Simulated scan of single mutants.
Amino acid sequence: MITVSTDGSCLRNPGGAIGWAWANHDGTHGSGAVAAGTNQIAELMAVLEAITAHPGDEPLCIEADSQYAIKCASLWVHSWRRKGWRTASGSPVQNLELVQGIERAIAARPGPVTFVWVRGHQGDRFNERADELAGIAARAMRDGTYVPVPVAPLAPPVDVLF
């Protein structure tokens, strides 16, 4: 099983620079930022990017400190789809493009994706690392020093014969 921690950072909610990050428990990681958004967008971006960066058959467990992101990706999405992308109150789903992107990424991935909630800022080293990376990206975007780095999916292991 691949285990990845995700986190988002919003420097001024709403409308400030946001950063997102994932930290694979094997040490690899990815992050990114945009000029303006919300904490919820940042959390959803982290989940989406973690899924797309880990294709393949191996089960993927995403640990997140955002109950909102977990519920969007694993619980609410099913009823929202059935209701024509409307909430229980009939209003449009917020952050719809990201929610649908996560749904598509999960459906396209041959291996299963599960979610686990972890309490943020409580010393979990992988959650802390994702938080750190998301914050670095958001601050770099705010300060005008952010340089996007393409995040390539992890390559499948290759057997090498000597």
Results as ranks from 00 to 15, higher is better:
T3M: 12
S5L: 07
D7M: 08
L11R: 11
R12E: 15
N13T: 11
G16N: 14
I18H: 10
W20Y: 15
W22S: 05
W22H: 15
D26F: 12
T28K: 04
T28L: 09
H29P: 04
G30A: 04
S31Q: 12
G32A: 07
A33N: 02
V34S: 13
G37N: 13
G37Y: 14
T38M: 10
M45D: 11
A46R: 13
V47F: 00
E49L: 00
I51M: 02
T52I: 05
T52P: 01
A53D: 06
D57P: 04
D57C: 01
D57S: 12
L60C: 03
C61R: 15
I62W: 02
I62Q: 02
E63M: 14
E63D: 12
A64L: 11
D65G: 13
S66G: 09
S66C: 09
Q67G: 08
Y68L: 15
Y68I: 11
Y68D: 13
A69R: 08
I70R: 00
I70T: 01
K71C: 02
K71M: 06
C72S: 13
L75D: 01
W76F: 00
S79A: 12
S79Y: 02
R81L: 00
K83F: 00
G84N: 10
G84Y: 05
R86E: 06
T87M: 09
A88I: 12
S89Q: 14
V93K: 07
V93Q: 12
N95P: 11
L96H: 07
L96W: 01
E97K: 15
L98R: 08
G101I: 02
R104M: 09
A105Y: 04
I106H: 00
A107N: 03
R109V: 06
P110Q: 01
P110T: 01
G111E: 10
T114W: 03
F115D: 00
F115C: 05
V116A: 06
V116C: 07
V116I: 10
W117H: 14
V118F: 10
G120R: 03
G120F: 05
Q122M: 15
Q122R: 13
G123M: 10
D124N: 15
R125Q: 13
F126Q: 12
F126P: 04
N127P: 07
E128T: 11
A130D: 05
D131S: 12
E132V: 07
A134E: 06
G135Q: 03
G135S: 09
G135M: 05
A137S: 08
A137I: 04
A137V: 03
A138S: 07
A138R: 01
M141P: 01
R142M: 10
R142N: 08
G144Q: 09
T145D: 10
T145L: 15
V147T: 14
P148S: 07
P148A: 09
P150V: 05
V151D: 07
V151K: 05
A152S: 11
P156Q: 08
P157D: 10
P157V: 14
V158P: 04
V158H: 04
D159V: 12
L161G: 02
F162V: 07
